[in-house]
Amino acid sequence: MSNISKVFKDSLASGRVVLIGYLTAGDPSLEQTRIYAEALVEGGVDVLELGVPFSDPVADGVTIQASAQRALAAGTKLLDVLRLSSTIKKSLKTPIVILSYLNPIYRMGFRKFFEEAGSSGVDGVVVPDLPVEESTEFREEARRAGVDTILLASPTTSEDRLDLILRASQGFVYLVSLLGVTGVRRELSPEALRILERVRARRERPYVAVGFGVSSPDHVKALVKGGAEGVIVGSALVKIVEENLDNPSKCLEQLRSFAARLKEATKF
């Protein structure tokens, strides 16, 4: 059982869903990301998702787009993000998932990437522009390195393709809660509960976590009630970073306390 699956198992056994927190690595600097990541874990985040900045993030809304721009301007590279994972893993056992668009990984080479990722303590990888049909070689290399490939499913996914995705996804399956891109939303999309129900109805399936637009403790509560086993919060955390660029200590405090409030909402 992978580290990620184990966190799901243990967390669910103790009456909570898994809280996954996203930060763009290198926004505003790698060192700050390390400090913020530790604050999130102190606040109660169970799995850290570190984003690799990309010039053309088509699945992201304005908040993560701007964050990626800041991280790129600071010179953040894929290898730096892997090094950061390795540094974080020296003091924390928290599983780390890398989120990257495909091209930076392709450019490094799948094998080299997974060797580096494996030796940096990375537990899983999410690639928003890699659908299951194109993922065979990628998953093969991931498996060799003992890294989970986490696939996405969305409200538009057909039953047939959902089968393929649930069979291939490792660690958990990442459910996109809405039609569209990442970003803070006031309301939880009604699509979220529908796709969740469709996945929960399957007998053979990996753990299921919901992301995109999950922005508040209320959203988390609704998802817990809808049967989610994990929740992924991204833009809402990145927004805190963005709003406190000139005040790192306030940022750290807000990240910690927001994570703690989200954590409260993960109980079922």
Binding site: V58, L102, P128, E133, A153, S154, T156, T157, R161, G180
Partner: peptide, 22 residues
């Protein structure tokens, strides 16, 4: 059938766009 011209082409998009493309 996979949308390839030799090695090139394919379909590298967010999951939400997969069914609309199909």
């Amino acid at each position: 059938s996979r949308g390839r011209f030799g090695a090139y082409g394919g379909r590298y998009v967010p999951e939400t766009l997969m069914e609309p493309l199909i």
